[in-house]
Amino acid sequence: MSASPLTATIDTAERTQSPAHRDSVLSVDCDGDALVALLSEPAITASSSDTGVLLIVGGPQYRVGAHRQFTLLARALAASGTPCLRLDYRGMGDAEGAMRDFADVDADVAAAIDAWQRERPQLRRVVLWGLCDAASAALLYVHRRRDPRVAGLCLANPWVRTEASLARAQVKHYYLGRLRQPAFWRKLLSGRVGLSALRELLGKLALARSARAGSDGAPGDRQDTRQDTRHYTEQMADGLRGFAGPVLLMLSGDDVVAKEFLDRCRDGGPAWQGLLSRPGLRRADLAAADHTFSTADWRAQVERLTADFVRDARPA
């Protein structure tokens, strides 16, 4: 594998090796822009690996991830026998090109798989792994591209946010709880809860009602007008429903993004009905975890869940 000129700029933590894995740099061309990806492979068995994990990094961040979570996940997977590629898509990290959001990275994902297969011809199938809007990007990719090389999806706290959905989640999971607390009413009656707080609550209630009425797709919400003019969340639902392979859904209990996703599955209309019980979906709830699985224990749980899922997704 040819080394990128950026190899010298990778920090010491990125280049640290262990006996169980090895890291190398993969340069990816996407429509003339150079992307950078880090490939972690089993130290001994890389030549026989026909299934790998492509870790899509959400924005705006790069391939290391918050508290180095993507570096550590990739190396844990490699140590367990599964190669993992972490990608900076265009406009992020060390990649060239204009900045873009999660709904416009289909070409970047396809280019990464193409480059990986050129460098490792034995690679036949990939599992897409994404946290937050990267999980959304994975669902949009399988919906739009129908890429037969994608053998599975690992989705962590998928992003389905609109202004209305956030208001609904806040009302349901925060404000209603506060209204049940005697301390809140004592503060209200004593004047320690100001009019601005009450106005905020009333505004959230109004937005939540608009979501119930089916107006989640506000005019300013992101749409991909080149391929599918529907709201991105509807495209995500079609991706999850239409994908034939297995899916691992990991949800954090202490995360409003995960709560918004569950609310969408329950109340998001016909496109979302029944998706949590679709065949091949394996759900894992990490009850105490935050959005990015920021402790060593939560990170280890995600690593085990992912490694077990990929092993089961491989053909017999």
Rank of each mutant, 00 (worst) to 15 (best):
G280H: 05
A138D: 08
V247Q: 04
Q17K: 06
L249F: 12
S80L: 08
V171S: 06
L166M: 15
L262G: 01
A288Q: 08
L275T: 08
R314I: 10
L188G: 00
R266V: 12
L54M: 03
Q223N: 03
S49H: 13
G274E: 01
V302G: 03
W272N: 06
A134Y: 03
Y174A: 03
L131W: 03
R311V: 05
A237G: 13
H231G: 14
R15I: 00
R144E: 07
E14I: 03
A258C: 12
S27Y: 10
I44G: 15
L201D: 01
P60K: 13
S196T: 05
R146W: 00
L87T: 02
R264Q: 13
W116K: 09
S252I: 08
R22H: 11
L240A: 14
L123W: 12
W116C: 00
E200V: 06
M92D: 07
V126I: 12
L54D: 02
D50C: 12
A316N: 01
G245V: 14
H173T: 05
T16F: 13
L35H: 10
W116N: 07
R241Q: 14
D228Q: 06
A197G: 06
S47V: 15
E96S: 11
A37R: 11
L176C: 02
Y175G: 05
K187A: 14
C84G: 03
Q61K: 02
P148I: 00
G191K: 00
P83A: 05
P5Q: 02
R304K: 05
D221M: 14
S49W: 01
V150H: 12
R192Y: 09
E119G: 04
Q273A: 14
F70A: 01
F70K: 01
F309W: 05
G268Y: 12
S48C: 06
L128Q: 07
L77E: 06
A13W: 04
L77S: 09
G239P: 06
L131S: 07
P121K: 09
T51V: 15
D94C: 13
Q117T: 00
A287K: 14
